[in-house]
Amino acid sequence: MNRFVLPVLALAATAALAGPPDKPAKVPADSIKWATSWDEAIREAKERNVPIHVAYHKDN
């Protein structure tokens, strides 16, 4: 009997200690779409005939 019960108990204890898995954050309903590269930004801006908004940042 112990042969089966002990591994199950061990697994349950491990799961309890590990806690719940990281929940993914909620996908924002809408957000700024950032181009992934300058090539992409310029190609799309030309195709759409729209200005390019450049944000330079540095963390504090």
Binding site: P24, V27, P28, E44
Partner: peptide
């Protein structure tokens, strides 16, 4: 950037973000 008016305005342009810090870590969304 999360402001709804800014988001709406951002759709009229192409946006590019430049920051050389690589220590932000990652976040899962779905």
């Amino acid at each position: 950037y999360p402001n709804k008016d800014v988001i709406a305005a951002s759709k009229q342009v192409v946006n590019i973000f430049c920051n050389k810090e690589d220590s932000h870590g990652t976040k899962k969304y779905g």
